[in-house]
Amino acid sequence: MKLAVGVAGTAKNTGKTTVLRVLLAEAAAAGIPVGLTSIGYDGEDLDHVTGLPKPRIAVPRGTWVATAQTALRPELEVAESTAVETAVGRVALARAVRPGRAVLAGPATAGGLTEVIARLHRRGARLVLVDGAFGRLAPMTAADGLIIATGAARHREPKLLAREAGAIATLFRLPRWPGDGHPRLRVSGPGGERVLPYPALLDPAWADELAAEAAAVGAREIHLPGSVSREALGRLGSQLDGPLKLVFSHPLHLLAPGEPLAVAEALAALAGRGFELGVERGLSLLAFTINPRYPVRAGGAYQWRAGDGGRLLAAVRQAAGVPVSDVVAEGPAVVWAEVQRLLGRQ
């Protein structure tokens, strides 16, 4: 009945805030109580990374907002403070006493986001919308669903954009094998279970140790929590033989190094050699949204240009395997339907 949906962007200016505004408006029209937070900082007039003007986040009356106390605006009335800290101060829960605008500075970590979502749900928000942050996805593991905004600002070439979207979607389709969430590299097989002291596969040397342990126990299953570096994963794969289960912790952890194409290719190579791949946990990838506009620097200032929206949409639709929409050109129906479907399923 209650859920949290994250809205992330593959790059700046892919339309994340626009999608958030659309979802806020749809939820208000449908009478669904909404909570709003961010894993970064959003809603300011100018982007803190690029300096470009940003769309403002309009909040309908009654919206619950979790943001840093220093970012509170007059239309937000504080109901409770939390112990969740951000770089601009402690997060508070506030309610819009009149329609207004929000500046969001929310929890930067999955742990913080989990707590904030729970508090917003307790306050009556049925749908919590989580605004993403520049270059980060991992805290969104606390959400139930994810919408990814992408577009010409990420790649202007439709084929490349589509390949990347397809690679990202592949990771969300990995089968889920719920496990115990053990936070260390671990192998198990007829020879027993061995646990290494490493929380992720970040170093080729750790991959060597893991491969040696796998060989020692005749491993049938290898648990790879946390992030994996492409280099270390390749090193591990080169020393293993199938059939073998590789259990990752979460699709978003696989995306943390920021190279979705490379990660997907590495996983495909492993699958091609007979390895079974899965994740302990996951979340629903609800949709991609496409923004065909992109900024270019001209004469010392940024200007917006428009890519071929039709080609971008068609290409990504073909590759993604989930709904894809341009919410500005097509309206919110496609994306909102996915959120409603998830709400109903919950």
Partner: peptide, 8 residues
């Protein structure tokens, strides 16, 4: 930051 988060 994201790799730190993903690594727990």
């Amino acid at each position: 930051v994201d790799v730190m988060e993903a690594t727990g």
